[in-house]
Design a protein around this nucleic acid. Structure first.
Lengths: 191, 191
DNA sequence: CGGATCGTTGATCAACTTCAACGGTCGTGG
DNA sequence: CCACGACCGTTGAAGTTGATCAACGATCCG
């Protein structure tokens, strides 16, 4: 299972089998079942998750009591509330399993230690954050550029893997509109 | 002027004066006047900018021909189209000076070389991208959480430094609505 | 002084939300 | 293995939010 993580690391940096085993020892392997929570709103965000298989999502609850999903993570994606993780403060987010999920998890202090002990991990995380930041910038562009309807078609094309496995109300939530409106868009397309 | 950059580096890593001079040699110092362009849509995004003073913005032009500003950068902020920079591909964005601006600039290959030559710069950029990603995540949350009106009040509170120096139509563009609507919000507040 | 740029106003219009209700399906307990 | 309840997607009507368009006044700058 953790071979997935090894392959992912080796896409960015070169490490020996021995080094990998040492690096892996900073992590814990966890499995959570569908709807199980890994972080609750108001808690300090202690962990950074690397999904090996399954799917996690990050969401918050707005003043109307509606869940808004801001992020999904599937195989080989990292997920956490980075701001709360970095400062070890309370998070406004929840992290929950969409499906049964296996992940590696590392707490803040272990991650700091890992970065100090392995220079090459600075390089790895520099890549990871750089890519994640670039992706977030493009996501912002899409939000500004597209109407909600076009955003849906764009997402369908760009991430068909999600549309297969994720319930529609979560997709609507992620795209920033209501399930009813998603229904309407789909009806329009059909006719 | 470049002392600003030195101070910024030293907030994250420790370097000697000598090292700093070497690092600085990878950059060029530029000054641009108001409305001058540093990147045009369709060009390969070759440069990464670190603002020493003044203000840059990144924007694109939507299908209706309207400029949408997705990012500002003032003193000690980095700015580029990270996706296009990383892959050295054409960018859909423009980068333009809002005011007369002085910045350090580094091209992609120099940045790669800098990262290879100075281990400590991997750490510095890991911090930079980590913070930038966390900030982008919070920005996304605000976009999902707030109505446009609330988004304006929130921005006013969080970034009063902008509201002073940036024309209103740019603020409206950044917040994702029209100047007319901003006018309406302001009128409502007044009464 | 004269033109371009910026903020404002008000009327009309489109995109999207809210609410209430209904039918299908899926999983769980009896 | 069936029945029931919870959950999910869908519909349609009415309501909001914010966009569009055209016009005007103020200000800045050459």
């Amino acid at each position: 299972m953790s071979a997935i993580f090894k392959q992912h690391l080796q896409k960015f940096i070169s490490i020996s089998d021995e080094e990998f085993e040492q690096i892996l020892s900073y992590f814990k392997l966890i499995t959570v079942s569908k709807k199980e929570n890994l972080l609750l709103e108001g808690q300090v965000c202690k962990q950074h998750y690397f999904v090996l298989n399954g799917c996690l999502r990050k969401f918050f609850i707005n003043e109307k009591g509606v869940e808004i999903t801001t992020e999904f993570a599937i195989e080989t994606w990292w997920i956490t509330d980075n701001k709360a993780f970095e400062h070890q403060t309370e998070s406004p987010f929840n992290i929950q399993a969409v499906e049964k999920t296996t992940a590696l998890t590392i707490d803040f202090h272990s991650q700091e230690k890992l970065l100090n002990d392995f220079q090459v991990m600075e390089r790895y995380f520099r890549f990871i954050y750089q890519r994640a930041y670039a992706a977030a910038q493009m996501r912002l562009k899409f939000l500004y550029d597209f109407s909600k309807e076009d955003g849906y078609y764009n997402f369908m094309e760009a991430q068909p893997q999600f549309v297969q496995r994720i319930p529609q109300y979560l997709i609507a939530s992620y795209l920033g509109f209501t399930p009813e409106y998603l229904s309407e868009i789909r009806k329009r397309k059909r006719s």
